[in-house]
């Protein structure tokens, strides 16, 4: 039974990683920007969510408003800063690195240095029996939300015209533009959606991981591993990679507690030596 519980823990954490990695992967796929601010979106989402819950007591409101606030932040970053350095990878990456520090300081200033754990929503604060053990319903809800988001993203990408434009842009942004697709609008959209998903992960992860200085960097590192393992530019890669890293992280901590990140990076190196572009990557 304990295995079922560990597996569920790994999967629910994997869903959080998927939310982070999906945006990271799409942003890289379309714009070739390595967005080092992505972990900050996650943490800002968690902090803003905690403030909304503290003021209104509504988890649902936090889950809607915090991601929208962060989406706006992402859109502004893209439109007014990154855009100036279109296709210049080094300046863009350095710029996102700078934002990482600016946001970290701002968060420290506003929310302080003590860890904050968001309260679970009332409807999912209990637990259910799995065999002879109890398992928190919140984590199960988290898995469900992750799957629903994955489904929506898949539908959007594969079944809508905007999704097809996005894929065309990822394949060949230059030609997509020359055929009349407003690629610069896609850039802003993808940045906003990527930030939104990361912040959604921040609010959802708040009750189990919490928010504290440094978490931005930690989750970003894990999200990068997910994207590298799953393949840059691939949503499916972000989902499978997220689950894989979530499970590895969880079981690694149980079997080799003293080795921490080792259990993630060794499998990553092995996968990359067989598939240099990641499991589902083409780039």
């Amino acid at each position: 039974m304990i295995w079922v519980i560990h597996t569920l823990n790994g999967i629910s954490f994997g869903m959080l990683l998927f939310l982070l990695a999906a945006g990271l992967s799409l942003i890289y796929g379309l714009m070739k920007i390595l967005n080092l601010t992505h972990g900050s979106y996650y943490l800002i989402g968690a902090y803003v969510g905690s403030t909304i819950i503290a003021k209104t007591g509504s988890f649902a409101l936090a889950l809607i408003v915090a991601p929208l606030v962060v989406a706006l932040l992402g859109a502004v970053m893209e439109r007014y800063f990154l855009r100036r350095f279109h296709l210049q990878e080094l300046p863009q990456t350095l710029l996102t690195f700078g934002f990482l520090f600016i946001f970290a300081d701002l968060m420290l200033w506003i929310w302080g240095g003590d860890p904050i754990v968001l309260p679970k929503p009332a409807a999912f604060s209990g637990s259910i029996s799995i065999g002879d053990a109890r398992y928190p319903t919140y984590r199960l809800a988290l898995i469900a939300v992750g799957l629903i988001v994955a489904l929506i993203l898949w539908w959007f990408q594969e079944r809508t015209r905007l999704g097809a434009m996005l894929r065309a842009g990822v394949d060949d942004a230059e030609i997509a533009g020359a055929l009349g697709i407003d690629v610069s609008l896609l850039f802003t959209l993808v940045f906003a959606v990527g930030a939104l998903l990361a912040a959604l992960g921040g609010v959802l992860g708040g009750p189990i991981i919490g928010a504290q200085p440094g978490a931005d960097f930690e989750v970003m590192l894990l999200a990068f591993v997910v994207v590298i393992v799953g393949g840059l530019g691939s949503l499916r890669g972000a989902l499978i990679g997220g689950l894989l890293v979530g499970l590895l992280d969880n079981f690694g901590k149980i079997f080799f507690p003293e080795l921490a990140l080792f259990t993630i990076f060794v499998p990553m190196a092995i996968i990359l030596s067989f598939r240099p572009t990641g499991l589902f990557g083409r780039l």
Partner: peptide, 8 residues
């Protein structure tokens, strides 16, 4: 060189 989109 045509440059069709592989994912479309």
């Amino acid at each position: 060189g045509r440059r069709v989109f592989p994912s479309l």
